[in-house]
Computed example of a mutant assay.
Amino acid sequence: MARPDLTVLAIPAFVGAMGAEFWWQRRHPAEPGTVRPGDYELNDTIASLTMGVGSLIAPFVTGPIVRRLSPGTTRAGTALPALGAAAGVVTTVGDVLRRRREHGGVLPEAGTLPDDEPAPVVVRSRAEALGLLTSASAVAAVASTAVAAASVWATEASATRLAQRSPFSMRSGAATYLLAIAGWDFIYYWNHRLSHESRWLWAMHVVHHSSERYNLSTALRQPVAEGWTITVPYGLLALAGIPPKYIEDARAINLIYQFWIHTEAVRSIGWLEKILNTPSHHRAHHGSQRQYLDINHGSILILWDKLFGTFEPEDERVRYGLTTNLDSFNPVTIATHEWRDMAKDVAIAPTWRDRFSFLLRGPGWAHDRRAELAPATDTEPMAGVA
């Protein structure tokens, strides 16, 4: 018999807690004429609950797909790297032809730097076709490479696979159980931090930050594309001799703990603020102001942030959401908008370095680089146009 998922068992408690928070808000209404971001708003709450249900269903859909796309395991998995290689060749040829056109039919001498003032661009239909082809092939090459890498990683770094390779025997008992919880919390800190510092992971994690409200329903606004990224594997705990069933429980306890910190009803829990991640610390984490960006990544313990220099207290009143908000409650838009924007950026990128940087580097870098490329893209409808 399969072991129950503790997060699923906790669903009635989640619903009851949201009801209690809503009741508290009705008993303590906002000042007349003001909007309190902790209050429930119907469309926002529906969007959060929909994403929560989607996050439960998604692994049953994406899991088999990821396994089938692992290179060397199926025909689809074997074809994926071939597709990426072919798209890469097409893109590289397009880059060469574009550069030839930009330099009068002759490639610049190796090692030379481009002029500060590029020559005026003349758009022709043939050049536009070349640009469209190069843009599409670049997206295909980067996407297929990313999917293949994520598929291999998900297969090889799973707790079950790493448990088989562990030099230690599986240990049981209360100490091992607590070690699993602490170990998951430590790895979670780094994965959460990477989810803010690498755009590939941010495209998955941004779902959770997309609400401009902050209440217990926001905790359930979870991503649905975790299978398409590469993170520090929690399977490392199995490699250290911790049984996979303990690891599953540690995951559930970690998620359940995070539920209650998504509230404005609790302002402080006293001296425990120094040790634990609390509503105050996590409110700051969800802030869109500059001082609140990329801070307080811990789950249960805030000690990791203090140890690794990412802690920031809640001082200024938090403004929730993204630096540029979606203005949409559509779950499809919430789940896919950053992936679409990333594909657009890869399409306009002029070099392989930029293309993979738009995938791997941070959202802030992508914003700045997009602004640098804007003058060229205003004239050129797509990358590669000359």
Rank of each mutant, 00 (worst) to 15 (best):
E109C: 05
G33Q: 01
S55E: 04
E41I: 08
W24G: 12
E21Y: 05
G105Y: 08
T155H: 02
P64S: 03
S158F: 05
E117T: 14
G72Q: 12
P81C: 10
P29M: 01
S48R: 08
T73D: 02
S125H: 14
L80I: 01
A82H: 05
P59A: 12
T50E: 09
L130S: 02
A149G: 13
L97R: 12
R36Y: 09
L162F: 05
A150F: 04
L132W: 04
P114A: 12
S48E: 14
D39Q: 14
V93N: 01
V89I: 15
R26V: 03
R165L: 15
V147K: 00
T34H: 08
V123T: 11
L107S: 07
A150Y: 00
S125D: 14
G33C: 03
A76S: 12
A110Y: 15
A150Q: 00
A138L: 11
S125T: 14
G38L: 06
S135H: 03
W24E: 04
W23P: 00
A136W: 07
S166N: 03
H28Y: 13
D116W: 07
S151F: 04
T73V: 15
L97H: 07
S55H: 15
T155D: 14
P118W: 02
T145K: 03
V90H: 04
G52W: 13
T45R: 05
A129F: 08
V53C: 13
P118L: 12
V93C: 08
R75P: 04
R99V: 11
R101P: 02
G94Q: 05
P120Q: 09
E156T: 10
L107P: 02
G111D: 11
L107G: 07
W153R: 11
R27I: 03
A82I: 06
E156M: 02
P118E: 10
A163I: 08
V152H: 10
A140L: 04
S55V: 09
S144R: 00
G84H: 01
A149K: 09
A154R: 02
Q25E: 13
G131A: 09
S135W: 02
P114H: 13
A30N: 11
V93R: 06
S137M: 09
G33L: 01
F168R: 15
